[in-house]
């Protein structure tokens, strides 16, 4: 499968005007690729994930297109997307594990979901059980209520449900955020397992936690203020980032091995621009140590190396 997104723009309407949450993003995901989508709060990563399945009715599609395996993905049209959801493109939304109906047994909920997609739930039962085993859950989970499961178990359950119909593209939005560190590792490894076993073709893993992505993602895309800043293979972007924002972000992350007394890390002063009325030109300009006069014009997202694209005039 391959995903090609061109100049996608999605705004949120509010009383005060349009919040330009996603303002022209262009990228591609290849077959079998796990792409990490990273950035801080308000950068638009969640919006991007949700827009690919038309998940949120408050979104207003302004422009751009998406192609899944060469055929258009009707992200503008919620009704038309219905054909694709769960089958071709599946999303694990943020807080999904808290969103399971507490009064329904999990097996029953899954059966309802499958039926709504026109799939015979009874026929799928053996497959469901096989997948539960794959992720390390017992069959008895299907007869339990969500409250009886731990956070990690619920998250893995949600992952199984979302991938039951073998979607080509899986979008996972902050699925490790609310978990303990040991469970995070298990969930992240399960995710990779899905791809390796070809249950899912490609993935978009959305998170603010770059270190998780450095473990499981093939490529990482960094977003800032509604636009793409940099996309590169994981080792490249972690080891030798080109965009100043990526550089500053990575160098502000404490790692075991770095101590305050030895080497003081520093953050990025200031805060992201408001998206109601974003500034002209490069949106990182105000906080960027490399900002120059050229930055008053918005830099295009261009390829600078093998699979490596950056949106910066001064990128090294």
């Amino acid at each position: 499968m391959s995903l090609q997104v061109t100049d996608l723009r999605v705004y949120y309407r509010t009383l005060a005007g349009d919040v330009k949450a996603l303002d022209g993003v262009t990228f591609a995901i290849a077959d079998g690729e796990i792409m990490g989508l990273a950035g801080e709060s308000g950068c638009g990563k969640s919006t991007l994930g949700k827009s690919l399945t038309h998940f949120d009715s408050r979104m207003r599609y302004i422009g751009g297109e998406a192609l899944l395996d060469g055929a258009p993905l009707p992200v503008m049209d919620s009704a038309a997307m219905d054909e694709f959801r769960f089958k071709a493109v599946s999303i694990i939304p943020q807080y999904a594990m808290s969103a399971m109906n507490p009064t329904r047994k999990i097996g029953r909920m899954t059966a309802d979901l499958l039926r709504s997609r026109g799939v015979n739930a009874a026929a799928m039962r053996p497959e469901i059980e096989r997948r539960l085993e794959l992720v390390g859950l017992e069959r008895s989970v299907l007869d339990r209520y969500p409250i009886e499961l731990s956070g990690g178990m619920k998250q893995r359950m949600v992952m199984v449900i979302s991938t039951l119909l073998d979607p080509s593209l899986l979008i996972a939005d902050e699925i490790t955020s609310a978990l303990d560190v040991s469970t995070q590792k298990a969930v992240a490894e399960t995710l990779v397992g899905f791809r390796d076993r070809k249950l899912v073709r490609s993935m978009m893993v959305i998170t603010h936690d770059m270190s998780i992505l450095s473990q499981i993602a093939d490529t990482i895309t960094v977003m800032y203020a509604g636009k793409l800043a940099e996309k590169a293979p994981t080792d490249r972007i972690i080891g030798e980032p080109s965009h100043p924002y990526t550089r500053l972000l990575i160098s502000s992350l404490p790692e075991v091995g770095v101590r305050y007394a030895d080497r003081r890390l520093s953050g990025i002063p200031g805060s992201p621009p408001p998206l109601l009325d974003p500034p002209v030109g490069c949106r990182f300009r105000m906080r960027c140590p490399l900002a120059s006069a050229a930055c008053e014009q918005e830099p295009p997202f261009v390829q600078v190396g093998q699979d490596h694209s950056v949106a910066c005039w001064n990128a090294e």
Binding site: S41, G42, E174, A178
Partner: peptide, 11 residues
């Protein structure tokens, strides 16, 4: 357990 997410500003 801490939740690592910030609510979108302006909510």
């Amino acid at each position: 357990m801490s939740v690592h997410v910030e609510a979108p500003r302006g909510t």
